[in-house]
Simulated scan of single mutants.
Amino acid sequence: MKTVILACLIASAAAFVPAGQTDRTTLALHADLTKEIGAQAPLGFFDPTQSLGADPTNGDQADFDRRRWVELKHGRIAMLAVVGYLSTYVGYRFPGAEDLPCGFANLAEVPGMVWAQMIATWGMMEAANQDQSQAPWGTDAGAQNFKAEFIGDFRNGALDFGWDERSDAWKRKKRTIELNNGRAAMMGITGLMVHDIMGNVDQLLPDWIQKY
Rank of each mutant, 00 (worst) to 15 (best):
Q134K: 05
K35M: 13
T25M: 14
W122A: 00
V83E: 04
T25A: 13
T139R: 11
V17C: 01
T139I: 11
F161A: 09
V110Q: 05
G152N: 08
D23G: 05
G142A: 15
H195R: 14
T3F: 02
K2D: 09
G182T: 03
L33F: 10
M1A: 12
E149Y: 13
G123W: 07
F64P: 03
A108L: 12
D202S: 14
Q50L: 11
E36M: 13
D23W: 02
V70W: 15
S133D: 08
N180K: 15
V82P: 01
A31V: 01
A158K: 12
M198S: 05
S51C: 01
L100D: 03
H74E: 15
F45P: 03
D153W: 06
A78F: 08
W208Q: 07
A185W: 01
A105F: 01
A185Q: 04
Q210A: 08
C8T: 14
G157L: 02
Q61T: 13
D60E: 03
E98W: 09
S87W: 10
P101M: 10
N180A: 04
A13Q: 12
L107N: 07
L43T: 13
W122D: 01
F16K: 00
Q144W: 09
T139W: 15
I197S: 02
Q21F: 10
D202M: 06
A78H: 05
G44V: 05
E98Y: 11
V83N: 10
N181D: 00
N156C: 01
D160A: 10
Y89E: 04
C8F: 06
G112C: 04
N156R: 03
N129H: 06
L159P: 04
P42L: 06
T26I: 04
A62P: 05
G138Q: 11
A13P: 07
A7M: 13
K174Q: 05
P18K: 03
I10V: 12
Q50C: 08
C8Y: 03
L43P: 08
Y89M: 02
R166I: 04
A81L: 02
R183I: 13
P56C: 00
V90H: 12
A169K: 14
Y92L: 14
V114G: 00
M113E: 08
D99I: 00
V114M: 09
V83G: 06
M125C: 09
L52S: 08
L204Y: 12
K174P: 01
I119F: 14
N181H: 06
W115V: 06
K173W: 15
E126Q: 07
N200E: 04
M124A: 13
Q210Y: 05
D131K: 06
R76P: 09
Y212P: 06
K211V: 07
R24S: 08
T121A: 14
L80R: 07
D207V: 11
T121R: 09
T88D: 12
D153R: 14
A19N: 09
L107Q: 06
T22V: 03
Q134G: 01
W163H: 00
A62L: 14
P18A: 00
T22C: 03
R67M: 09
M125Q: 01
G182M: 07
N181C: 03
L192M: 13
T3M: 07
Q61V: 14
S87C: 11
A169W: 08
Q144R: 14
P48S: 09
Q134H: 02
M1V: 09
S167E: 07
G182C: 01
V114H: 10
A19M: 15
G182Q: 04
I197R: 13
A62S: 06
I77V: 09
